[in-house]
Amino acid sequence: MADTKKAPRPASSPLKNGYLVLYNAVSAGLWLTVLSRVIATNLLSANGAADVCPTTGELCKWVQTLAGMEVLHSLLGIVRAPFVTTFMQVFSRYAIVWGVTDLFPNDPAIGRSPVYSSMLVAWGVTEVVRYSYFALTLSGFEPKFLHWMRYHGFFVLYPLGISSEAWLIWKSVGPAEQAVGEWYSWLLLAYVVGVYPPSAYILYTHMMAQRRKVMRALKANSGKAQ
């Protein structure tokens, strides 16, 4: 009978591993800065959520832009993340930070809306957990709390982030016609109505599949240990 055991995966090179640890650690620190600013502004600023975009919007835009590296990581095989879902998630964030909030930072319904804060809180917590988890795991640690948050927190964080994103895009449809042109208004409308729902579904179900895979692995390892 043929041996059906899979061959062990080749060990990651120290150079690639070191690069990924550095990338994830830096990204975690940057998102923690964004999240801290959002919380501090909401709690301490006289105008609360209305001051979040003026104080944090530019930083968030460039921190999120850095995440475009993850598309290259997936494309070049540096990480095992699927290219399609990675591209979809990064592109949807780009659409927000470059195509919506960067255009309307002072609009009461967009950049100065509490929904902008709720979106950044969802993004910030998600990314601090994700990047910290990967940085520590690649460094040889097993962060149990971060592992739990990574594969359970998305139940709340994803719907909060996705609904906030969709709301901001929807509210930008009207202002876009005046600021850019009617074509851009129709483009945003088509995106939020026709593209966003299936994309959000794919990303959410991808995380559900990842969670099931991880939970099965934990259960199998637990059974072996007994």
Rank of each mutant, 00 (worst) to 15 (best):
T33R: 11
P175V: 09
A95P: 01
Q64A: 12
E127M: 07
V173T: 08
G77T: 03
M149D: 04
D3Q: 11
A179T: 09
Y201P: 15
V63K: 02
K219H: 14
M69G: 05
L187R: 07
P82L: 05
V79S: 14
L160E: 03
Q178C: 05
A95D: 01
V193H: 06
T86C: 11
V84W: 05
G29E: 15
K171I: 07
S139G: 15
M88D: 08
L187G: 14
A40T: 09
A217S: 04
D107Q: 08
A25S: 10
F141A: 02
D3E: 12
R112A: 07
T33Y: 13
S117F: 00
A166C: 08
L157H: 14
L157E: 10
V156W: 11
Y94E: 12
F83Q: 13
Q178G: 06
Y116I: 00
W183T: 01
P8F: 09
W62C: 00
V97L: 03
L59I: 06
A81C: 06
Y131N: 04
S13Y: 09
S13E: 12
M69R: 02
T205A: 10
K224M: 04
Y133F: 15
V156T: 11
Q89H: 00
S27P: 13
G174I: 06
W167R: 08
L75M: 13
S139P: 09
E177V: 15
T137F: 15
W148G: 10
W31P: 02
G194T: 05
G181A: 05
Q64Y: 06
A220Q: 08
G194H: 05
E177A: 11
L157Y: 14
A190E: 02
Q89W: 00
V38W: 05
S172T: 08
C60V: 00
P105L: 08
A25F: 06
I96S: 06
G153D: 05
A40Y: 14
Q89L: 01
W183D: 01
L146I: 12
K213S: 14
T137L: 11
W148C: 10
H147V: 02
V100M: 04
P82D: 08
P197L: 08
L66N: 09
M69D: 04
A122F: 14
F155M: 07
W186G: 03
S113W: 00
M88R: 05
T65W: 15
K61Y: 13
V79R: 09
R112V: 06
G57A: 12
S199D: 02
F83E: 11
L168N: 03
L157V: 08
M88Q: 08
F154H: 03
D102A: 15
G140C: 04
E127A: 08
S45N: 09
F91A: 15
T65N: 11
I202S: 13
Y158W: 13
Y158N: 05
M1F: 15
L59Y: 03
F154Q: 01
V125T: 09
H147G: 02
K61W: 04
P197M: 05
V214K: 15
Q226G: 08
R112G: 01
S117D: 12
A225W: 11
